[in-house]
Amino acid sequence: MSENPNNWPLWEVFIQSKRGLDHKHVGSLHAADADMAIENARDVYTRRQEGNSIWVVESAHIHSSRPEDADSLFDPSDDKIYRHPTFYTVPEGAKYI
C-alpha cells in the first residue's frame, strides 16, 4: 500500500509473555526488515517486561477468512453437539469420567 519505495513495510507483532504460553497478536509496526521489526517490537510492545519471545510477520503475508463468509464457513460445526462432553449421559454412580 506504500506510495514511496522508501517506506518500510508493515509487520504484525506477536508476543509470548511467558514460556509455555501462546504467542499473542499485540499490534503492528513498520520496519525495513525482520531484524528491525523485532527490535522495534521490543521497544514498543515490551517496555514493561511483557515479553519472553517475539514473532513478526509481514502483514502482506497474512491471509484471512472473509467476515461475510463467516456464517457458511463455520456452519459445519453448528450441528455437532456430540463433539462436546456434555452431550453424553453418564450413568448414575459412575465416577471420574
Binding site: S2, E3, N4, N7, L10, G27, V44, R47
Partner: peptide, 25 residues
Amino acid sequence: AKVQDEAGHGLYLYSACETLGTSRE
C-alpha cells in the same frame, strides 16, 4: 520513560488507524 511511552502510544494509534485503510505516510 514517560515521553517514550507517548511515542509508543502514538504508534499503537497510528497502527489502529492504518487498519481502516489509510496509509501511515
